[in-house]
């Protein structure tokens, strides 16, 4: 086994909340030594079988890891980038044999589809979009939505990705005057797309018609909100947000995530729940991910905290290990794994 293959290392036992819920199963080591930026999980067809694979991103390379045995992964393929560094992996729900990445420095400059063809006929990297891109999200049915700034306005565009990685279809959504910060699908509503803006508004589009349906102010206390999850229930829209600019201390503790409810008909909204750190823990949101009823966040303290959104409280804490702070955390889209990464390229699978 080369050093590129996975290994399980000794990790200190945690004296934290419900540590048993999180069990370290393996560690993926990046031998290149370059700065690690993101991780994701995807399905890939290997010898005719769809396998749950892990995708890791360093500054200038993205790697696909296939499962070997229980809790073991082997690097299968790498895509290399020479000019523009990788900013993030763009997870594509419900797809197989396709990875999308955003490249850039401060802003996204390119979005590329990564594929793995053995013949020389097809390219293994295809440029999907370029420009000053502020936000991107992978949607179901091989679609990708992005917003980019032109000289005079903002463009919101959906591309449908063909089997060869090219863009099969392009559709434009009605533009918004304000810069879009994040996009989110509305669970259970295939035709609804939500966006948060830097001016503290939430906007909703109809994906089928491209119509901008409503702009809803959510107040100054939700500045620079990132939307992690949205769902509609009983005529109301529930949205899970995080706030990189949130104050570190509130009377109830340090809020990291927040659930708000909006009535899309009246555009009136209110807070429902604050997801705070346990007493004695410091930090605010740096980076995080929400899947089903679980939220995970890397905090400014270097710790990862996990909340059960239904219970309303923090259920686990992963302190920095090997003297290295955590730098990103993602829920796996293919199984019940939590993928946690450090800057030096080490990825821990829980």
């Amino acid at each position: 086994h080369s050093i590129e293959q996975t290994e399980i290392t000794d990790v200190p036992a945690y004296d934290t909340l419900n540590p048993g819920n999180l069990q370290l199963v393996s560690k993926l080591k990046n031998p290149s030594g370059s700065c690690s930026v993101d991780v994701s999980a995807t399905w890939w067809e290997i010898a005719g079988v769809k396998e749950p694979c892990i995708v890791t991103a360093c500054e200038y390379a993205v790697s696909l890891w296939k499962p070997l045995d229980i809790w073991q992964w082997e690097k299968m393929y790498s895509w290399h980038f020479t000019e523009i560094p990788v900013l993030q992996i763009v997870p594509m729900p419900d797809v197989c044999n396709l990875v999308c990445v955003a490249l850039g420095s401060l802003e996204i400059r390119e979005i590329r589809a990564l594929l793995c063809f053995s013949d020389a006929k097809n390219e293994n990297q295809v440029l999907l979009n370029s420009g000053n891109i502020q936000a991107v999200l992978g949607l179901t049915k091989r679609r990708l939505v992005s917003s980019s700034r032109t000289l005079c306005d903002q463009q919101v565009e959906i591309v449908t990705i063909a089997e060869d990685g090219g863009s099969k279809e392009k559709q434009f959504l009605m533009p918004v005057e304000e810069t879009i910060q994040t996009f989110a699908e509305v669970q259970g509503m295939q035709e609804a797309l939500l966006g948060t803006t830097i001016m503290n508004n939430i906007v909703i589009w109809n994906l089928k018609t491209g119509q901008l349906l409503k702009k809803m102010p959510i107040g100054d206390s939700y500045q620079a909100s990132i939307c992690h999850k949205a769902y509609s229930e009983m005529g109301l829209l529930f949205v899970v947000l995080s706030h990189p600019c949130a104050k570190e201390k509130e009377p109830s503790g340090s809020p990291v995530f927040q659930l708000i409810v909006i009535n899309p008909k009246t555009a009136l909204s209110m807070g429902v729940m604050l997801y705070c750190l346990p007493q004695g823990q410091a930090g605010r949101f740096l980076e995080g991910d929400v899947k089903d009823n679980f939220a995970a966040a890397v905090l400014t303290s270097g710790t990862i905290a996990i909340w059960d959104l239904l219970l309303g409280h923090c259920t686990a804490l992963l302190p920095p290990i090997s003297d290295q702070n955590w730098s990103f955390v993602k829920w796996s889209g293919t199984d019940s794994h939590l993928l946690a990464g450090q800057k030096d390229g080490n990825i821990f699978v829980y």
Partner: peptide, 23 residues
């Protein structure tokens, strides 16, 4: 939270907003 503070609610809000919004 108090639902009354959010105003009248419609289960079919998406369809209604789609029919009201400019094409």
């Amino acid at each position: 939270c108090n639902q009354a503070d959010l105003g009248p609610i419609s289960i079919n809000w998406f369809e209604e907003l789609s029919s009201e919004a400019p094409p």
